[in-house]
Design a protein around this nucleic acid. Structure first.
Length: 275
DNA sequence: AGCGTCACCCGGACGC
DNA sequence: TGCGTCCGGGTGACGC
């Protein structure tokens, strides 16, 4: 489940090049191999194949959990979902069995979208806003102030944890960083969004920023999906630490299910009543 | 309208 | 070995 820090780490690597692999900007897509049609969300496969051919990659960036690749015409948008990974590899090297979509680039290089669980999606859009338009604010953007978060929280009467996972509320958080952010903010995941006092909303803002920035410093977390490099998984405070001691107070980390998602928290640091 | 819940898409991991 | 179950991001259906 690549979330904001993992997607950002992947996007940076593709933009600048890494470990002997070239940077993507400036390279041309000579053709695309689609081994599993379900990967292509839009447009249709024939149209996608035709329109992407001959395009030059201008940049690689990120919006929410999307990898955004502007071409000289149109924009390629890739959502990695659960198990997706993007790698640059020599065309001559055998692709792994999950490389369902492969862009053959200039100079003998591939951009490979490997995705074991096939949840990922590729979009080719004239206007990237048609795909990204519903996303909420970027949590690390300077415009995302505590006041902005506070206002958005009060505009809903929703359970905190599922609200943090709602990409239209805030873009980029997934299960890991939502749990880690709530723990840092000392807020119970069942709290109602409109019940937070100003000081609590500020704590949540801080918790979100700290969790994401710490994840970024560790190049993201490597669990479940094939992702090399990141080691934030060794620094989780609550996520997937059910029964283990809270790093702050030593209490046993609890796990509940909220909105069909495993939710990890410290019952002592994150009391259900106002703190 | 806003909210919560659930099914669905997949296949790896794991328990029995 | 071979089942069954769990997990999860995002979307859409449904009911309140």
């Amino acid at each position: 489940m690549p979330e904001l820090p993992e997607v950002e780490t992947i996007a940076r690597g593709l933009r600048t090049g890494e470990s002997g692999r070239p940077a993507l900007p400036g390279m041309m897509v000579e053709k695309v191999s689609i081994r599993w049609p379900g990967h292509i969300a839009e447009p249709s496969i024939p149209v996608f194949t035709r329109r992407v051919r001959g395009r030059v990659i201008r940049d690689v960036s990120r919006r929410g959990k999307f990898v955004v690749i502007p071409l000289d015409r149109e924009t390629l948008l890739i959502h990695l979902r659960m198990s997706g990974d993007l790698q640059v590899a020599p065309t001559a090297a055998a692709p792994d069995r999950y490389a369902h979509t492969v862009f053959h680039l200039s100079e003998g290089w591939d951009l490979r979208f490997s995705d074991a669980r096939k949840f990922g999606r590729v979009y080719l859009a004239q206007d990237p806003q048609s795909v990204l338009g519903t996303l909420g604010p970027e949590p690390l953007d300077p415009d995302f102030t505590p006041a902005v978060l506070s206002l958005r929280l009060r505009n809903h009467r929703r359970t905190l944890k599922p609200l943090l996972l709602d990409q239209t509320f805030i873009a980029g958080l997934g299960n890991i960083y939502a749990d880690e952010a709530l723990h840092r903010a000392c807020l119970h995941p069942l709290r109602r969004s409109d019940s937070l006092r100003r000081e609590e909303a500020e704590r949540l803002w801080q918790g979100i920023r700290e969790a994401l920035q710490t994840g970024l410093q560790h190049n993201g977390a490597s669990i479940d999906w094939v992702f090399r490099g990141g080691d934030f998984q060794n620094h989780f405070r609550v996520y997937q630490r059910t029964g283990e001691p809270c790093p702050i107070c030593g209490s046993s980390i609890a796990r509940i299910v909220l909105g069909q998602r495993g939710t990890h928290f410290c019952p002592s640091c994150q009391p259900e009543v106002e703190s």
